[in-house]
């Protein structure tokens, strides 16, 4: 039996769905990069009481990059959220409402990921040595 596709307005845009995941992916990448760098550096290139400054510099760099990417993604989400005149909640069964909803969710996830990245980075602020 032949099935008919639902109207395009009712479909979620796959491109927007991927955008939704970028901020948490930045968070995951930042977390892994920070801990892998410190683990490898302390295990392979520094004594047990080795200075933690090189790691702190590397994590600061990762943090700036991750927060910049998240700010950019959050900006995209904010623009999608504010598109047009409608207000929250974006729950109409239309393509525009769906884009506004995904934009708003992207913005909120960006904020959450930004805070999580700062929490991860905070650990390295007090890291004096490889101990």
């Amino acid at each position: 039996m032949k099935t008919t596709k639902p109207a395009a307005d009712g479909l979620l845009s796959s491109a927007k769905l991927w955008t939704l995941t970028f901020a948490p992916l930045c968070w995951a990448a930042h977390f892994l990069a920070s801990y892998l760098t410190s683990a490898i550096y302390c295990a392979k290139y520094a004594p047990a009481d080795g200075d933690g400054l090189p790691i702190r510099i590397a994590v600061a760099l990762f943090t700036v990059i991750a927060l910049s990417l998240i700010a950019w993604i959050g900006g995209i989400g904010l623009r999608a959220h504010h598109m047009g005149e409608t207000k929250l909640p974006h729950d109409d069964n239309t393509s525009r409402s769906e884009q506004r909803f995904l934009g708003f969710a992207t913005l909120l996830l960006s904020l959450l990921s930004g805070v999580a990245i700062l929490f991860t980075a905070l650990v390295f602020v007090i890291m004096e040595t490889c101990h």
Partner: peptide, 10 residues
């Protein structure tokens, strides 16, 4: 976190 350096120090 502020507690950590002293607890971790040899």
């Amino acid at each position: 976190l502020v507690m950590l350096p002293e607890l971790q120090r040899p």
